[in-house]
Simulated scan of single mutants.
Amino acid sequence: MATRRGFIGSASGISTAALLGYSASPSAADTPLANSTGTPATSAVTQQQAKESIFAVNAGMRSNYATLKAELVKHLSPVIVVQNDAKGGRFTLVTANGQESVNPVAETFELAKSIAHVPLGCFSVIASYLADKIPNLPNADRIDPHDLLLVAFNDDKSTAWIDPLQAYAVTLTTARKNLPAAGLPAALTTSCGNILDAALKFINASVTAKVFDMKSFEDFSGSVYPDIRVNMEHAAQAQIKGVQDTMKTWRAKVGETAWADLYCVVLSQWTTSVLNQNTIIIKDCMNAAKVATHLIDLPGLETPKDPIFTALDNLARIVQDNIAAEMVFPKDTKVADALKGKEDLLSDEILIQLGGSAATTQTSPTYNTLSEGMCPVRK
Results as ranks from 00 to 15, higher is better:
Y367C: 05
L339F: 13
G88W: 01
R176H: 12
V265M: 03
L20N: 10
T363H: 13
I115V: 15
F329K: 02
T31M: 15
Q83E: 15
A17G: 11
W161R: 04
A325H: 02
S43N: 14
Q99I: 09
A106R: 08
K331E: 12
G255R: 09
A34L: 15
L267R: 03
C285V: 05
I8R: 14
S114P: 00
S15D: 14
T257K: 13
D284Q: 11
S114A: 07
A288D: 13
A152R: 03
M374Q: 12
V105N: 11
S43C: 13
D284A: 12
F309N: 09
Q49S: 08
A292P: 00
K113P: 01
Y367I: 09
E52D: 05
I80Y: 06
V94D: 00
S128T: 09
Q244L: 02
T208Q: 14
A236G: 00
F309Q: 10
L275R: 09
A116M: 04
Y263D: 02
M1K: 10
T360E: 12
M374G: 01
N276M: 05
Q244V: 06
V79Q: 02
D306V: 04
A359Q: 11
F220C: 06
E233I: 08
Q269W: 03
L301C: 02
E110M: 11
R90D: 03
K283M: 04
D141N: 00
A175P: 06
M1E: 10
A359V: 06
P78R: 03
K157Y: 04
Q237Y: 10
P138I: 06
E107P: 00
Q48A: 11
V291R: 05
P307C: 03
E326K: 09
L19T: 12
N103V: 12
Y129S: 07
Q362H: 07
A59L: 08
M374C: 07
I162C: 04
Q244R: 13
H75P: 05
D344E: 09
M374A: 10
G255C: 08
C122V: 13
E302N: 13
N103E: 14
M1W: 08
V79K: 03
S268L: 05
Q237P: 03
M286V: 09
D144K: 05
S124F: 14
F109D: 02
D141S: 02
A106N: 07
L354F: 09
D147T: 15
T171C: 11
P330C: 06
A199V: 10
V45Q: 14
D30C: 11
V82H: 01
K51Y: 13
V377P: 01
E110Y: 07
L354Y: 11
S12K: 06
Y367G: 11
D213E: 11
S124A: 15
D332I: 00
